[in-house]
Design a protein around this nucleic acid. Structure first.
Length: 323
DNA sequence: ATGGTTTTTACTGCGTC
DNA sequence: GACGCGGTAAAAACCAT
């Protein structure tokens, strides 16, 4: 019922690489129109034809939006954009480590000592109360695990937010920081549509799978988070790329899953297994060589499960779309 | 705690390179 | 003979009750 359209991930190779960075040009290389820099989107675009000449510039605008002037007053401040990935949202005072003054001159030894003391105390105050310290450690942990799993930044942010909420709701007592941090990451990954299986998560986490599942349930329930059951399709792109298979195969796998869904072969089966089987079956259909063993390894699923699932998948696709 | 379902483990036989 | 594959039975894990 929810969008059943097959999303084809045919990454249009960017052949729009017409703009070689050949110095600063004032005119559009396509039509010769005037170039305008669009701060809001951090792009330089041609005012005539709309060609984007330069992307990913530094966006000097604020990271927030305000809808009336009162709100603007409230949110205005100086400094770097806030981020939930730092325990104090990146807002606290930082004393530079270089012993230089504002003009870049070296400090006298007396001044250096003074700065050193200030640094020490600043650090102590900054991470003073237990919640702050707690957060600091947890966020470090989240970051470590996320990069070990190759999860993008937005997942880390989400995980940070979830953890923060858990902390505010006093869900921590009786549970390990690590456990909650791991659970937050697991939840965030699923919400972001880039799920990692419990196995994968617990492989990089310091907590046992049992504790993780327990904590995860608890956090989800207490925070009222809504996490839809994992969609097998979300695993497909990762497996496909891990196995060096073609886009064609990826498309096939999606189709198989789609017809499986219509036939209701679904319910109760582990999504990971389904995804793995679909990838295997698709590779078979497109004559690319992968063994069940290969798939079972990248998916951390047993070969037997792949066999069972993929038989069902093929049956389902036969009845759904007879050859 | 229990029972039903799914996944895993372990083993066997078949065909192919 | 090693390897990939398919099947089976029994054990283990999981989930709702």
């Amino acid at each position: 019922m929810t969008d059943t359209t097959i999303r084809t991930y045919t990454n249009e190779t960017e052949d729009e690489e017409t703009t070689e960075r050949s110095g600063e040009q004032e005119h559009c290389p396509e039509c010769g129109g005037r170039l305008v820099s669009d701060d809001e989107h951090a792009e330089t675009v041609c005012s005539d034809c709309g060609l984007v000449v330069e992307e990913d510039e530094i966006d000097r605008g604020p990271e927030w939006r305000a809808f009336d002037s009162a709100e603007k007053d409230k949110k205005s401040r100086v400094g770097a954009p806030t981020t939930n990935m730092m325990h104090d949202q990146g807002l606290s005072t930082n004393i530079g480590w270089q012993d230089k003054d504002a003009y870049g001159r070296a400090l006298s030894s007396r001044q250096r000592q003074k700065m050193q003391r200030l640094r020490t105390w600043n650090e102590r105050f900054r991470t003073r109360d237990s919640k702050e310290r707690n957060l600091k450690q947890a966020l470090g942990e989240i970051d470590r695990m996320a990069s070990a799993l190759g999860l993008p930044e937005n997942v880390r942010e989400t995980a940070s937010v979830i953890y923060r909420r858990a902390l505010e709701e006093d869900l921590l007592p009786g549970r390990s920081i690590e456990g909650v941090a791991t659970a937050s990451l697991y939840a965030a990954a699923r919400q972001a549509g880039t799920p990692r299986s419990l196995d994968e998560i617990s492989a990089v986490s310091r907590v046992e799978k049992m504790e993780l599942t327990r904590t995860y349930r608890y956090v989800i329930r207490e925070l009222g988070l809504e996490v839809k059951p994992a969609d097998p399709e979300h695993y497909v792109p990762r497996f496909v790329s891990d196995l060096d298979l073609s886009d064609e195969t990826e498309r096939m796998a999606r189709e198989l899953l789609e017809s499986a869904r219509q036939e209701g072969v679904h319910s109760g089966k582990s999504p990971v297994g389904l995804a793995a089987a679909a990838v295997y079956a698709a590779a078979l259909l497109t004559n690319e060589k992968v063994t069940q063993n290969d798939v079972s390894e990248v998916a951390s699923i047993s070969e037997v499960t792949i066999r069972n699932r993929y038989k069902e998948l093929l049956e389902a696709s036969d009845t759904a779309a007879p050859a």
